[in-house]
Design a protein around this nucleic acid. Structure first.
Lengths: 218, 218
DNA sequence: AGCGTATGTGGACGATGTTTACTTAGTAGC
DNA sequence: GCTACTAAGTAAACATCGTCCACATACGCT
């Protein structure tokens, strides 16, 4: 029934790479069942090791969970990057800026839909995302928050956003997509069909783009 | 050390109101530690009853948690109502509509800041909020989602929102405030000062109001 | 009065996180 | 190359949690 992928009974007394094995196992559990599903004992089991061995690498299960969370955040960042790669700076900086902002929002939401467990794990309880912890980044070296900032900078530089409106705009923009994602993943919008979520996502980023700037209409 | 407030050793064999006592105990635990902190055994302990007694009133701990969640949602609705009571329909329907929408957003966010544990408990995993379960409502008989709908209806009726823009607007608006609340409560914005959160909340509802309608500027 | 049943009790099981004490083997120093 | 240090894994135990089973109690209906 249970396919223990990783228990190929090692022959060395030392595992060699236990810390990583535990995080990997935890990541898979998070992927399937969210943050509450990352069980310390189960991780050691999958690594083919006694429960206590984990305590040589993590202070407690919260520490393990924190490591798993970092990994999840990196995945989010990677998903956003993937989306951002699709937009190139052409001759119209404003179009580029808009596309960048949209990429962040859609990348974020897309990941949430594709990997609900990891997404929920990424954003719960005490993540030090704000401080640029390299463990949270993907290939560009930016965490999701910084990727969003980048997109907003492009908006500002291209004249789409005044300096005043640019300030703290990441919080507003992020709130929006994050809220939709969580309402769908573990909230009352639980059974909303995927395509509708994505359609709402499109409307949402438009709303953000329009709503951020105080220029047009007061 | 531990003040067991409610264990006044009953003399009747029957508790009389155990179901309620358990929910109350659970609510307090949720208030302090969020959904993960509502422990079935602890609830029975506080009610001065053996652990299994709970199973005469709830199928399992998930059922208890569901009841607690409903109570939490009611509190959210009550907080929103409180805020909505402050705005009266005057001679300017549009002003009334705007104030209503703002009331929903601010009431929601305010509750999230005041009662983080209950708020997090209210919106996690499988809440049947969508169906108008009377257990989720407050004095007006409306759950948070319906209160939001009401405010948006006022926007529409007063001409601030076209029929097209009105459609599904509750999802967009809700996403926004909910996202900010969760980012602050259990996300990366964990240590943001309260006043800044509320200031952002103000900007947020403005953004929603401006961003919802496609009339002005496309 | 008697009885059915809703309600509460006691004891047990498996699972989890965590601690304490012990074992093993890789490595650094002489 | 031997030895001693120490990082890494093991074993056994404990407290807590959710849950199941069998049993006890007393409320309220006939």
């Amino acid at each position: 029934m249970k396919k223990n992928v990783t228990i190929e009974k090692r022959k060395t007394f030392r595992h060699g790479d236990l810390r990583n094995a535990l995080v990997t196992a935890g990541l898979e559990m998070a992927r399937i069942g969210g943050p509450n599903a990352v069980i310390l004992r189960e991780a050691t089991r999958q690594a083919g090791v006694s429960p206590n061995a984990a305590y040589r690498h993590f202070a407690n299960q919260a520490a393990l969970l924190a490591a798993v969370r970092s990994a999840c955040i990196s995945r989010v960042a990677a998903a956003i990057e993937e989306e951002m790669k699709k937009c190139h700076p052409g001759r119209y900086p404003q179009a580029f800026a808009r596309k960048s902002l949209r990429a962040v929002g859609i990348g974020y939401l897309g990941f949430a839909m594709r990997e609900p467990g990891m997404f929920r794990t990424a954003f719960s309880v005490p993540p030090p995302v704000h401080s640029p912890d390299p463990a949270n980044t993907a290939s560009m070296g930016l965490n999701p928050f910084q990727l969003l900032s980048l997109a907003l900078d492009r908006m500002h530089e291209s004249g789409l956003l005044s300096k005043k409106d640019r300030k703290d705009a990441e919080y507003l923009a992020w709130s929006t997509v994050h809220g939709l994602a969580l309402l769908v993943l573990e909230g009352p919008l639980h059974k909303m069909p995927h395509e509708m979520v994505l359609a709402l996502g499109e409307r949402l980023v438009v709303m953000v783009e329009r709503g951020l700037s105080s220029e047009i209409a007061h």
